[in-house]
Each structure stands twice: as structure tokens, then as C-alpha cells.
């Protein structure tokens, strides 16, 4: 039992070291990209942004709208019982903008783009596309990982703000229909409860979640060795680890910003 625990600890340490090394390499490629591969990498970045950001808008809109409706419906029916009718704005900011917005967006990005990245890279590895790229002098960090990290971080940031806006809109629809609160008081209540710290916290979560998802998913995709049956196994690991690390990061950011 102790041996198993020790081995798991060592494995976890090595895993986190590998991820940290990948983040470091990505930052190095980003800071000093050199001349070679700049345009090719930019093209990969834009394509990934199109898939992760733009193509995700319909599903993010639907989930955000429904979540906004649910949260305000629950709050609107429960708060009057304790005399908290005026707390609608605070509820939206605390529940949606601070927590559910970033986390739900991260889970959507993990399940859509994270899984796709791991699958694509895993298949590339088995088909020796990665080896062929390396043999052409095309570095994996510059051409494969860095563009995906940049694209996922930017897409994650935009999607979180978009999610928040749509969720607030969903909340307003319920507030208008069920609770008969007009737009101006509703918007005023949300604006009053929102602070710069909330915006900065959301930005921090967007950057950290995006980095986590992209790096973890790339790492697992590139960990595939020789068989297509390894691909779904690595996808499962990538998704579970991405969600776990995002939750841990969320706790750390929440503690750092709000405590």
C-alpha cells in the first residue's frame, strides 16, 4: 500500500514536471518565436481559434442561457422567502460571473476541443506525422503545442465573457417574465455587484484554464506511442486530468482573489 502510494506520488510529480516543462517551452516559443514557422504557426493558431472559439458559440450560448434561467429562477423563488429580493445582482455576479461562467466554459472547451486536440495529436503520432514534421526540422513545440495553447487561451477568455453575458441575459429574461423586474434595475443591480476584482479574477481563470486544457490535452495526445487503441485511453485521461486541474486552479484563484 505504501509502495503503491509512493509510486503514485512519484508518477504525479513527474506528470506535473512534464506539464510545467511544456508550459515553459510554450512561453519560450511565444516570447522568442524566431523567423521560421511564424506564419505557419499563426495559421494553425487561427484554425484552432475558429474551432475552439467560433464553432463553440452555439453550444456555449445554449448552455449559458439555460444556466442563467435556472440560477435566477431558483434565486427568484427562494430569496423572497428570506427577504433577499434585492440580492439578484449579487447572486448573478457570485454564482455566474465568478464561478459557474469560467468553470462551465472550461468544461465545455475540454469536452469539445480538449478531446479533439488529444485525438488529433494521438492519431498524428501513430501515423508518424509528428515524426515526419520533426524530420523536416519543424519543432513540435512551435508548430503543434504553442499555437494550440495560444488559441485555446484566447478562445477560453472570449468564451467566458460571452458565456457571462448570455447567462446574465437569460437571468434577465426570467427576471422580466417571472419576477417582473424591468431591464434598468436589473442591469443596475448586476453592475453594482460587479467589481474590477471580479473581472480580473475571470481573466486569471480564463488564462489559467486555457493553458491547463491545451497543455494537458497536447501532452496526452503526444504521449500516444504506436497504437490507435491508445488514443481513446489518452483522451479519457486528458479530460479527467484537465477537469481536475481546472478545479484545483479554480480553488487557488478563488482563495487568492476573494479571501
Amino acid at each position: 500500500m505504501i509502495g503503491w502510494l509512493g509510486q503514485k506520488t512519484i508518477d504525479g510529480y513527474i506528470y506535473l514536471t512534464d506539464l510545467s516543462a511544456q508550459v515553459y517551452l510554450t512561453i519560450c516559443e511565444l516570447v522568442s518565436p524566431g523567423r521560421q514557422g511564424r506564419w505557419a504557426s499563426l495559421r494553425v493558431t487561427l484554425r484552432q481559434m475558429l474551432f475552439t472559439g467560433v464553432d463553440a458559440l452555439p453550444v456555449v450560448s445554449a448552455v449559458a442561457l439555460m444556466l442563467g434561467l435556472i440560477v435566477i429562477m431558483q434565486a427568484g423563488t427562494q430569496l423572497p422567502k428570506v427577504g433577499g429580493e434585492g440580492l439578484i445582482g449579487s447572486i448573478i455576479v457570485v454564482v455566474i460571473i465568478r464561478e459557474l461562467g469560467p468553470l462551465t466554459t472550461a468544461i465545455l472547451v475540454i469536452s469539445r476541443s480538449g478531446a479533439a486536440i488529444t485525438t488529433e495529436l494521438g492519431n498524428m503520432r501513430v501515423a508518424q506525422e509528428i515524426t515526419a514534421l520533426e524530420l523536416m526540422g519543424i519543432g513540435t513545440s512551435r508548430y503543434i503545442v504553442m499555437p494550440r495553447v495560444v488559441a485555446v487561451v484566447l478562445s477560453m477568455l472570449c468564451l467566458i465573457f460571452y458565456f457571462d453575458a448570455i447567462a446574465v441575459l437569460g437571468g434577465f429574461i426570467i427576471a422580466r417574465i417571472k419576477l417582473t423586474i424591468p431591464f434598468y434595475p436589473f442591469a443596475h443591480a448586476v453592475a453594482q455587484s460587479l467589481s474590477l476584482v471580479d473581472v480580473l479574477g475571470t481573466v486569471a481563470k480564463g488564462v489559467l484554464f486555457g493553458t491547463t486544457v491545451a497543455v494537458v490535452c497536447c501532452h496526452h495526445g503526444l504521449s500516444v506511442r504506436s497504437s490507435y487503441t491508445e488514443v481513446p485511453q489518452q483522451v479519457t485521461k486528458a479530460m479527467i486530468n484537465s477537469i481536475t486541474i481546472c478545479l484545483l486552479v479554480d480553488i487557488l484563484v478563488t482563495v487568492a482573489v476573494y479571501f
Binding site: Q36, G37, W39, A40, N123, M124, A127, Q128, E129, T131, A132, L133, L135, M136, G137, I138, Y143
Partner: peptide, 24 residues
């Protein structure tokens, strides 16, 4: 040239052939 050609599956033959020049 390895035994497996290792062409990028989401690129056409032409873009595969020009990839090293486009990149470098």
C-alpha cells in the same frame, strides 16, 4: 522518407509538399 509517408492528413498533397518551404 520513412516507410510510412507521414503526410499531414488534413492537408492536400500540394500543401504537404510545400509545407517545409512554407514553414522555413
Amino acid at each position: 522518407v520513412l516507410q510510412q509517408p507521414g503526410l499531414r492528413s488534413n492537408m492536400t498533397l500540394y500543401t504537404n509538399v510545400t509545407l517545409p518551404m512554407v514553414y522555413h
